[in-house]
């Protein structure tokens, strides 16, 4: 709202402000509850959760729905009580940048291509693409159908869309972030594909795929762990859990979950 208020007066600005105000109003109204529509992939997600034991005690707790604001998300499958555990993601399905160390020769190849300066989010993006490319029948390749083709990140905006926010700090930040990501990709590829052709087939690690994976991390990564030790914190991708309010436009009037 603050960024939008600072934009120059225009029809777009007024429309954006009205949409944001309406969204805020819905959060404040008790009768503004959006129960969403059935999602076409609801059965597939149910099967995924059952197959990978994501529901505690085998009881169905969540259902995939399509919400008017925020799109695809998770709803309670039945009345749930405070304290109920609704989702448990096993360690084998969690993806963090540490997964990269399980590939022989990758640490050396990464270091040769990009030094030790790679951001953890870039490393996690690589881990995601590797996981999908490595095992076509694996859980992450299977889970891809629930991930958006175009995650809601400003990095995907066309310059025409960015220009609507001209005169805000956002334009410079988005441009710089895209440029830094392009440089990271250019440092890694084709170097990694030449060094480890079996692991990095070029088609699976194009700029387009790389940007997609990075924006998945950006919009769906969860920062977990660490406790009192910030250096022990890490970003993980957790299937199904990432559907809990992934969208920046989702209503937040129901703050009901914590990660433990």
């Amino acid at each position: 709202l603050r960024l939008c208020s600072k934009a120059p007066h225009s029809a777009t600005r007024e429309a954006n402000l009205a949409a944001l105000a309406a969204s805020r109003q819905r959060l404040l109204q008790a009768d503004g509850e959006d129960l969403g529509q059935e999602d076409e992939l609801a059965d597939e997600l149910r099967a995924f959760c059952a197959r990978h034991a994501l529901w505690p005690h085998g009881t169905e707790t969540l259902v995939l729905r399509h919400f008017r604001v925020g799109g695809r998300g998770l709803a309670a499958a039945a009345d749930l009580s405070a304290g109920d555990t609704v989702l448990a993601v096993p360690e084998s399905l969690l993806l963090s940048s540490e997964r990269l160390s399980s590939y022989d020769g990758l640490a050396a190849a990464l270091s040769a291509a990009a030094g030790d300066s790679l951001h953890d989010d870039v490393r996690l993006s690589l881990a995601l693409l590797l996981e999908i490319a490595r095992d076509q029948a694996g859980a992450w390749a299977e889970y891809c159908r629930f991930l958006p083709e175009r995650p809601p990140s400003a990095l995907h905006w066309a310059s025409r869309q960015l220009q609507r926010l001209a005169h805000t700090p956002l334009v410079g930040r988005v441009t710089a972030a895209r440029e830094a990501l392009r440089e990271a990709h250019a440092a890694l590829f084709p170097a990694l594909s030449l060094a480890l052709p079996q692991l990095f087939p070029p088609a699976s690690f194009s700029w387009r795929r790389f940007l997609w994976a990075y924006t998945v991390v950006q919009t769906r990564g969860l920062v977990v762990g660490g406790g009192a030790e910030p250096r022990a914190r890490r970003t993980v991708l957790a299937p199904v859990a990432d559907l809990l309010n992934y969208s920046p436009t989702s209503p937040l009037a129901w703050p009901s979950l914590e990660a433990a």
Partner: peptide
């Protein structure tokens, strides 16, 4: 181990969307 469990902070009626609380 790094398994993640998600627990409700408040009751949620059937059909209502769930959100992570940061």
């Amino acid at each position: 181990t790094l398994a993640l469990t998600f627990r409700l902070l408040s009751a949620v009626p059937a059909g209502r969307q769930l959100c992570l609380y940061y």
